[in-house]
Design a protein around this nucleic acid. Structure first.
Length: 157
DNA sequence: GCCAACGTTGGC
DNA sequence: GCCAACGTTGGC
């Protein structure tokens, strides 16, 4: 499948994923049940992920990642010092999961939402829908390919 | 910092 | 299990 993962670049940017090397980064801190369900049940090894930078100066899709490891208990839920600590989590009953995300490519330019909205074929993309707050969003192959195509067009211009 | 759109909580 | 109040997300 194809996905859009939202991240705050101050936390984990496309460059951080690149810097992490072949092991990739731990995609942790998802604390929304709908997003958790996607992560736990449907995100599979080899799935490709559009990395979307949010809450920052340059909001938009910054590059591509790939799933290197499927859902396992999110370590941050057990760490009292972590922002993502969940006092109710126990090793027996751990509701939150993490995956491992590896680097594929960084776009030559962050694709903003206004730019993407202008692309014929992306009109129905969930990421672009008003009020969308999910941090793990499924995308279609057509949408994924189109976004890559737009990124490529920019890199050649 | 505004505010729309959700998600979560808790009294009943 | 309803629903109002409150909290959070996130683009702008």
């Amino acid at each position: 499948m194809y996905w859009v993962f939202k991240t705050e670049p101050a936390e984990c940017s496309i460059l951080d994923i690149q810097a992490a090397g072949p092991k990739g980064v731990v995609w942790e801190g998802v604390r929304n049940y709908q997003a958790r369900n996607f992560l736990r049940d449907q995100v599979k090894i080899g799935d490709q992920v559009l990395i979307h930078h949010s809450s920052c100066a340059q909001v938009g899709i910054a590059g591509v990642g790939v799933i290197l490891a499927e859902a396992y208990p999110d370590p941050s839920q057990f760490q009292p010092r972590s922002l993502y600590y969940d006092a109710k989590s126990t090793p027996e009953k751990a509701p939150w999961v993490a995956v491992q995300v590896g680097f594929v490519e960084q776009f030559s330019k962050v694709l903003s939402m206004t730019e993407l909205r202008q692309i014929y074929g992306l009109a129905d993309m969930q990421l672009l829908k008003k009020g969308n707050r999910l941090s793990i969003i499924p995308a279609t192959k057509a949408e994924f390919d189109l976004v890559l195509c737009v990124a490529k067009a920019y890199s050649e211009s």
